[in-house]
Each structure stands twice: as structure tokens, then as C-alpha cells.
Design a protein around this nucleic acid. Sequence first.
DNA 1: GTGAAAGCGCTAACAG
DNA 2: CTGTTAGCGCTTTCAC
Lengths: 337, 337
Amino acid sequence: MKKLTIKDIAKEFNVSISTVSKALNDSYEISESTKEKIQKYAKEKNYKPNFNALSLKNRSTKTIGVILPTMLNYFFAQVFKGIEKTALKEGYKVITCISNQSYDKEQEIIEMLSNGSIDGFLLSTAKETELNNKYDHFKDSIDNGTPIVMFDRVAQSIICDKVITDDFEGAANTVEFLYKKGHKKIAFISTISDLQIGKQRLQGYKQGLEKVGLSFDENLVLNIIEKDYKKYKNKVRPFIKSNDIDAVITTGESVAVSTMKALKKSGKKIPKDVAVIAFSNGILARHSSPKMTTISQHGEIMGETAAQILINKLEKKHTEITTKIIKTDLVIRDSTR
Amino acid sequence: MKKLTIKDIAKEFNVSISTVSKALNDSYEISESTKEKIQKYAKEKNYKPNFNALSLKNRSTKTIGVILPTMLNYFFAQVFKGIEKTALKEGYKVITCISNQSYDKEQEIIEMLSNGSIDGFLLSTAKETELNNKYDHFKDSIDNGTPIVMFDRVAQSIICDKVITDDFEGAANTVEFLYKKGHKKIAFISTISDLQIGKQRLQGYKQGLEKVGLSFDENLVLNIIEKDYKKYKNKVRPFIKSNDIDAVITTGESVAVSTMKALKKSGKKIPKDVAVIAFSNGILARHSSPKMTTISQHGEIMGETAAQILINKLEKKHTEITTKIIKTDLVIRDSTR
DNA sequence: GTGAAAGCGCTAACAG
DNA sequence: CTGTTAGCGCTTTCAC
């Protein structure tokens, strides 16, 4: 029942605990024969050095704290997958907490884990945190020697490693793609106009228009503040009716689905009359009809990258501060020609 | 930089470390004045007792190990949400690992965490584990004093606390519901016929038929082994063509979407000609057209329940072994009349 | 080649 | 009311 300790093994062979410790760590100080028998015994009995004792001694837990705004989102679930995979590969465990987009929760989590539970944080900021521009909790953590790597939703004002999606380029390239297909009246529908990434996407959209020589028309931009996806249609329908558009870029899948429904309802064919492209994590896009062309985000790679950066930092493999940009890919399905 | 310890505080006030320890724990042995100044100082300096030292001393980590087959699945993400919420509420942290449906991975994870990292496991078995009926790693863990609570995909042969969905009743009630709406030719499409929960759902379907007096026709059951959802339609279309059905129950959302597409393609109206109901986690169902009626699974409640059972067990609040069944709910949307 | 002892940060029994 | 000490499980320096 009780777990086997170095002490028990020492007793078993009538040697000191330091001999056992050294034998298990294959020290040159210990004779081959002693090492062999001790190692064999330890293996047989499935001995494992106690995690907390090691952490205490080494002042390092080989554990990463992950803070996500939510897990009920395919993108973040993918990021998590990448983090977990990379962490495990590198011998790290992952303590995962959900901020639920709340600043208070986020800061409680940081407090809770700042007691030697973890070696560093991997996080995407809560919406509330971003809206209120309250980043002191991050700063405190870094100042206290617990490094942070931020991903996707990052805090501009905090100096730390970051991994972000290429939202700007993604949007710009999409406009260009649509233009080349002959689209001239390209709308932009955003449900995250208040977030930094939303602003980036809008900027990219504008940049794309400029590049191909289309003029920006603010009537072709719809910002939906409403957070309940069921109500998207109340905004989308009139928007579509009152504008003569031939393409739509949306910031998410859910609103793209609403948009496609609204388009169909108003007698438009997709993609014949109107093309639809969404920033997307993939799950709805692949099941919609028609299947959606998406600006695909590579959450898993983002997670892997962020985890690797943090681990390298923890193991002092590099110390400079970087911002890594993960490219988006246009995945062409059936909602574009 | 370096974290404040009890020792530092002791030095600050020229008292012993035990005085500090007791003061911080509000011991009756310490004078009010001493307690006050020490507590005040600790608070100011944001002192936090070292997690690893505490765990080592108490032989308890207040940490739960969670093993999920995948996180890229709305249901499991919901379960995770429930676990995380309950754990945090009870002062527990959560180390989360993904088995990716692999037995080897699952058992590595258990090995890795069985060194005093965690107090207990919360897990849903990997598919491979279930198919091969290899459950020794679970048994070992329990025998070694690390309790396990299983949820959703549980191992019949392992004696431990379990939380499961009411798959049997869910399917049976659905048949009854359809029958009352006038459906007589009710098909059953499964993509998990090899899993225990799949068998339960099929049994429930049969039970439902029996109850309402319809005879079981094995031609109305389609088992899809193919795991790529893109290929579902290859099986679903001929199945639909060769059978004259007026309702379909599926084991998942994804295949329900394929089924609805196939039905529409063959000229059937949903729900007028054929009703569709899926066991579901909700995300696709809410965005399909028509919106899908579902046998809804309450992942979050399952997670909360499982976590609470484990924590109660760890804190010795109860010791008997239970299996808790979470009811399903029929959520009626537009794919049924 | 092996062992004694200190120390990681904390608690608690015991002494004063 | 405060302090000394042992001990949680392990590593590591220093003796022998």
C-alpha cells in the first residue's frame, strides 16, 4: 500500500540511503554489483522517486500551468492538444485551468499556482482582462520568476514570449484570393471587433482591399456585439438584404453558418452568387452545407510552439524573448468557387 | 526573486520558524500580537506556503489526474469543464493528459503520475483499452492506493466508482417518443458498435421497440466501422435507399449530419418524411439545418459528479463504491415533428 | 566504495 | 507563549 522509498530499499540491503540514491542514479562512486542488485530490486518493486521530494529539492516541478479562456471551442482544444503532446514529450506535466473569460478567475488561478506548483505559465488572456487592460497579474508572475508564454490572445504591453496567429495576413490574403476569383463587393462580418485579434483581422481586410485596388466601404462591415449565436441572424439578415455583396469574410464559423443560412433564405446561391469564407477551427466548417472554405488556424501547432518555447526557456536553452507568428492557410471547400 | 519562506519571516522578526508556522496557522499557542504582526507581514509580502513542502509533509497533493481519450470532442470538453470547476471549488488542481485512445499512452500516463504527483484519477478509458480488455493498469493503481473514478467509458470488470450516461434508457425513450409521433419504421445507425456504450444504445433501441410493440428488424440497423466521417455517406446512402424508413436514431452528431444530407439528397423532407435524432453533445446539432433533435448528454454534470465523488473519497467523506447514472434529455429541435 | 549529515520548506510533538 | 527537534523523501558534499 504505502509507496516504496529509498529508505525501504536501504533497509532491504543493509546499506545507507545515500548508497541507494547513488546506485539508482548510476553514480560512478558505487560498485557495479551494488548498483546492479539495487537497480534490479527497484525495478521489480516498481520504485519511483517521490515527485514532491524531488521538486522540493530541485526547486523545479517539471509542471506547466495552462490557462485557457474556455475549452468549449475547437481552436483552444486543439491548442491544448499541442501543448499536452509537447509537454509530455519533454517530460512535463500540465495543470490546466479555465478562466471562463473572467479577469478575477484568471488572477485567482495565477495566485493559486504561484506557490511552487508549476515552473511557468502558458496562457491566452481572458476577454475581460483584455477589455479592461488589466495585466498586472501577468507582470507580477514574471517579476517573481515564473515565466509566461502567451498565445493567440496576447497582451501587447507585457514583455514576454508570444505565439500568435497571422490574423492580419490571413485576412489580407483572403481578400486577394476573392478578388482574383472575380469578387468585387466583399463584406466583412466580425463578432470579435472588441478584441485585438478582431482588430487585426479587420485591418488585414482593409489592407487586402487596398492592395487589390478596391475601396473600403464601411457599409460592408458588420460588427456583431451580441454573444448569443442564435441572435446573429437578427443582425446578419438585414445586413445582407441592404447590401449587394458577392463575398463575405467572417471572423468565426458560427456566424458564417448564420450568414450562409441568411443568404440561402434570401435566395442567394453559395458559392455562385456569394462566396463565404470564415476564420475557423474546422469542426462546423467541415459539416456545413455547402462545406465552408476557411482561413485555417493551426491551433495544435500553436500549442506545440508555445509549449516548446516555454520549456526551452525553463531549461535555459535560450533566453531572448520572441514573438512567433503561425501562418494561416486558406482551405478551399465548397463555399467559394 | 526567490520566494519568501517561513525562514525569511522568522529572521525578519527574530523568532523561530515554528513560531512563524504556528502564527500563520492561527495557533492558539501564539500571542495575538505576534500572530498579528506576522500575518500582516506575510500578507504584505504575499507569502505562500510552498506547495511541494506541504505535499511532502501531508502526503497529499490536492491534485487530481484526469485522463481523457481526446479533447477534440465537445462532450469530453464539457466533462472537463465540469471537472475543472468542481476541483477548483474544492481546492484541487487538475493535471490533464490525453490518451489519444491508446492503451500504451494510457498506461504510461498512469505510470508517470503514480509517483505522488496526484491523489487520485478521473478517467474515461481509451478505445484500444476497451477493445483489448486490458485493465491491469487501472487495477494496479487502485491496489497501490490511488483511487480511480471512471466516467462515460468505464471498465465493467474494474471495481471502482463510476459515472455513466443513461445510454440504454436514452435510446429506449427515444424510440417511444418517435412511436408516439406516429413513426413505425425506425432505423438505428451506429458508429460505435464496438464500444460498450454503443451496445447499450442498441440494446435500448431494441428495448424501446419491444415496449411499443414494434418488431426488431436487423435491416434497419446500420453499423459503420469506418472512422473517417467523410466516408459515412458511402454507407448511409445505400442504407437509406434500400430501406423504407420514417425515422433514424444515430449514435452521434456527425453521422446524423451525413444522414440528413443523404436523406435530403434522396428527396426526403426532414422532419416531414423522416425524423432524425442523435445522441449528441450539441455543437453540430445546434447549427445543422434543420436543427437537430438530440438525446442530450450533460457532459458537464458528468464531470462535476465524477470529480465530487473522487474528492469525497479522497477526503474520506464516504467510502462505499457507487455507480452514478446521469440521465439523458430529449432536446427537441427541428428534425422531428 | 560506502555512509553521515545537511538541507529543500513545512508541520507538530515536545520542552521550556 | 516561544523554541528545539524530528521528519516527510530525496540529493549531494564531505568524511572515512
